[in-house]
Amino acid sequence: MNSIRMHSVLALFLLLLLLPWRSLAAESNDGFCSLPQPIMESSSRPLYWKVTNPTLSPSHLQDLPGFTRSVYKRDHAVITPESHVFSPLPDWINTLGAYLITPAMGAHFVMYLAKMGVKSKSAVPPQDVERFLFVVQGSAVLKTDSGISHQLAVDSYAYLPANYKHTLESDETATIIIFERRYASVENLYPEPVIGSTEKQPLLETPGEVSCTSW
């Protein structure tokens, strides 16, 4: 009888111990260890909101150190927003930058995010370095030594040849994606600045899946 009673008490204890976990599984459609569904995006968010904001789920773990989707391999890297580390950009005024790709990682170019603040101003690229920029938030003004100014809103881009004197200024806040690399000269070819917007470019047919090119 004592053995039967002991087994009954043990079975009851195990049942009570498992009840909370069974409740969690019952509340989830995917069963045990399933993650909460991500919050649906608001239509009021900026167009490129995901470029600078973590979108991890569950939300209460987004600020946990080391919790990231970033991947770094020999020939490619994906640095997601939760891994961005911002610090003042050298020679820029009131601007923070987060480097995403650098030659130290094996690339032949530099890619970084520039968060321009109020009354901010860019620095000039190093000698013989060409620059490409794309606006993902806010707006900025591209000024050249010839006195010409270009208002760059979201979706605007600019290719600036090596040693092309210019500045990028913002009276409010703006976020810019910038690529820079040392220009590889080609005989009798002298590139010109290219400034435009993706909104004014025709859509290209891309049948099937399009993959990114590694460096």
Results as ranks from 00 to 15, higher is better:
Pro54Asn: 12
Leu56Asp: 06
Ser23Ile: 11
Trp21Ile: 10
Ala26Ser: 13
Lys50Gly: 05
Leu18Glu: 11
Asn53Met: 11
Ser59Glu: 14
Leu15Phe: 15
Leu18Cys: 13
Ser59Cys: 01
Pro54Glu: 08
Pro20Met: 08
Leu19Asp: 05
Cys33Asn: 01
Pro58Glu: 11
Gly31Tyr: 02
His60Cys: 12
Arg22Val: 02
Lys50Trp: 06
Ile39Gln: 03
Pro20Tyr: 10
Glu41His: 03
Ser34Cys: 05
Arg22Met: 04
Phe32Asn: 02
Tyr48Leu: 10
Ser23Val: 11
Cys33Gln: 01
Asp30Ala: 08
Pro20Asn: 08
Leu18His: 12
Leu24Met: 05
Pro36Phe: 09
Pro20Val: 08
Leu19Arg: 10
Arg45Thr: 03
Ser28Glu: 07
Gly31Ile: 03
Ser28His: 04
Ser44Pro: 00
Leu17Gly: 15
Leu15Thr: 15
Ser28Val: 09
Ser34Lys: 04
Asp30Glu: 10
His60Phe: 14
Ser44Val: 01
Leu15Glu: 08
Gln37Ala: 13
Cys33Gly: 01
Phe32Val: 09
Ile39Glu: 04
Gln37Ser: 12
Leu16Ala: 15
Ser43Pro: 00
Tyr48Phe: 15
Phe32Gln: 02
Lys50Asp: 12
Lys50Ile: 01
Ser43Val: 00
Pro20Ala: 10
Leu19His: 09
Trp21Val: 04
Leu18Phe: 14
Leu16Ser: 14
Val51Asn: 08
Thr55Lys: 04
Pro38Glu: 14
Asn53Gln: 10
Met40Phe: 06
Met40Cys: 09
Ser59Asp: 10
Cys33Pro: 00
Ser44Met: 03
Asn53Thr: 15
Pro58His: 12
Asn29Ser: 11
Leu35Asp: 13
Ser57Lys: 08
Pro36Tyr: 12
Glu41Tyr: 06
Thr52Phe: 04
Arg45Ala: 03
Pro58Thr: 12
Leu15Asn: 09
Cys33His: 00
Leu18Gln: 11
Leu56Ala: 09
Gln37Phe: 06
Arg45Leu: 10
Thr55Pro: 01
Ala26Leu: 10
Ser57His: 14
Leu24Ala: 11
Thr55Val: 06
Trp21Cys: 07
Pro46Phe: 05
Arg22Phe: 01
Asn29Pro: 00
Ser59Trp: 05
Met40Thr: 12
Leu24Ile: 03
Arg45Val: 02
Gln37Lys: 10
Tyr48Ser: 09
Ser44Ile: 01
Gln37Thr: 12
Glu41Gln: 12
Arg22Ser: 04
Pro38Trp: 13
Glu27Ile: 06
Thr52Pro: 00
His60Asn: 14
Ser59Pro: 02
Leu47Asn: 10
Leu47Met: 15
Ile39Lys: 07
Leu16Trp: 08
Pro54Tyr: 07
Leu15Arg: 05
Pro46Trp: 06
Pro46Gly: 07
Glu27Cys: 07
Gln37Ile: 08
Cys33Ala: 03
Glu41Asn: 09
Pro54Gly: 06
Leu17Tyr: 15
